[in-house]
Design a binder for these strands. Structure first.
Lengths: 306, 306
DNA sequence: ATAACCCCCAAGCAATACTTATGGCATGGA
DNA sequence: TCCATGCCATAAGTATTGCTTGGGGGTTAT
């Protein structure tokens, strides 16, 4: 059964004549006539009676018209649904992000997105970068927020595109009572070398690797006493004087223990935050708008553009 | 929304890859690939993600697939319905017939039809020939049984086909006690001239016209005392000796009053029974089968053929 | 009677649909 | 590691399809 011809037949049935259908289709009459003839040959039965003032449906034609109407309705429904997705009255984005971004960056972006497109549905899943990549590769999420530290070159998956969303500076975190906490103006970098005898707190696997690399650049090997990938725990330990550590600005934006002081330090290289998505993301409205919202959250529009 | 491409997309979605869809369609891979590209361009969104081992649906693709499946189901349902009509597991025929045919011929044909195609639905409407033609012309019935007397040439409507179904002999009907009722062997024609002084009973308008013509051929003008188009009434009148008349064999097959005798007579010309249908009737299975059944009822198959 | 409205058929041209040919990329086994 | 195999895409050529043009027949209304 040829769906296209079925819809032409529907036009014929509704307009009551072949010529009428041709008019409403913007065609000539023989064009429609030929389609009808082919359709009737295919089904092996007459679908209409040709009468002087137009056509009249046979029983088979009546039966077929019902189906044709149902199909036309479905096609319109499909158009409407796709239109809703295109105009972002609906649409889902599934996003995987690492913890500190999930806490600080993503909520802001989601809020911006909800404001722009109230009908959209954003779903966040917290995941460390390697897992986030897997989720993206298996299609469980549409977007992944990851980070790399300086010198790290990211593992790439086929079919995925990586764009730099921004830089996340790494800060030195000290107890409020620490001698270096207020030794100089807040914006003057601390020399890490002076902290080589401190007890340090490591973070996640890759953060700890970064800590080791940074200290090596500064000329010493840190004495890592504790390890946690939870920046609340890290700050709690620091506030109690159990060690000092490095934390990215995103984590500090998300949470700040009043018992700690944050300082910039020499040799601290920022980590890079990446946004990863499918090659086709530009052509998926919901994903595209989410990407835009994330970008706009990281680098807000210059003043004057509403 | 292009229904054809939508169904191709459905194949892609179900087979999980463009190449797979091409295989199941018997096409080459680029053919399917191009259709998908055109569809995606039309809807303005990506419908699938191209991944190394095949494709994966986007949100829009998932939405579209539901509609595509619904449409495919409808198309199959349409095929099934038409198939039922083609094979006469279903189907309706609306038939208009004049009274004596309705009583004698049509029930036999309907019974034959029911035996051949138990699922069929035949609907009879009794109507005199002129009305039957109108019903056919306005599409209220599919078939009309009419008759014409000798010399009458039938009014033709455009788009309708008239075929001769058979001849219906006209008989002389006398009271059982009438002098001519048994005056000679039953198959010897009576000379109408001998009945010129009788009282006659007329039938319907056209039957009465035929009576007048017949008598004129025989050389007299009949004395018509009563008129009825009901052959039961006619026979009741005759049985009571209130007149004599002419009746077609079909009417006598349908009903025979024991008080009358039927004779053949010279100059009596049979009436012709016509079957009228649309030009397209051959291509409407239900109508075609009804036409066949009527023919087979009038001229039964020669012995030896089941 | 002529105009207007149906419908059909046949032939020609233009758009579309499919094939062939080729290349890139990812995976899995020798 | 390299090659074989699977997926996909693009470009160009051909073949089919689809629509138009230009006939003609028929019925109805002015």
């Amino acid at each position: 059964m040829d769906a296209h011809r079925l819809l032409i037949f529907r036009q014929i049935a509704h307009s009551g004549s072949i010529a009428g259908a041709a008019r409403s289709l913007g065609w000539t009459q023989p064009a429609v006539s030929q389609h009808l003839r082919h359709l009737e040959r295919q089904v092996g039965m007459a679908l209409v009676l040709r009468r002087p003032r137009g056509i009249q449906l046979t029983e088979a034609g009546t039966v077929l018209l019902r189906h044709a109407d149902a199909i036309a309705t479905r096609l319109h429904a499909a158009d409407d649904d796709l239109d809703a997705l295109a105009q972002l009255r609906e649409g889902t984005v599934r996003l995987a992000a690492f913890p500190s971004a999930s806490a600080a960056l993503v909520p802001a972006a989601m809020s911006l997105l909800a404001q722009r497109h109230p009908g959209m549905d954003v779903r966040l899943r917290e995941a460390e970068p390697p897992e986030a990549l897997d989720l993206l590769a298996t299609g469980e999420v549409d977007l992944a927020l990851t980070f790399t530290h300086a010198g790290e070159h990211p593992a790439d998956h086929p079919g995925l595109v990586r764009v730099v969303l921004g830089e996340d500076p790494v800060r030195l975190v000290l107890p409020r009572s620490h001698p270096h906490a207020h030794a100089a103006p807040p914006d003057q970098p601390v020399n890490l070398r002076l902290l080589s005898e401190e007890r340090w707190i490591g973070g996640c696997e890759r953060c700890t690797a970064n800590l080791l690399q940074t200290c090596q650049d500064a000329g010493f090997v840190p004495d890592i006493r504790h390890s946690t990938d939870d920046y609340v725990v890290t700050q709690a330990l620091i506030a109690r004087g159990l060690g000092i550590g490095l934390l990215p600005q995103l984590a500090l934006d998300a949470f700040r223990n009043p018992g700690v002081t944050v300082r910039v330090a020499a040799k601290l290289r920022p980590r890079t935050v990446h946004l990863i998505h499918h090659r086709e993301a530009d052509h998926i409205p919901a994903v595209r708008s989410a990407v835009r919202a994330l970008h706009d959250t990281v680098s807000p529009l210059p003043p004057g553009s509403s």
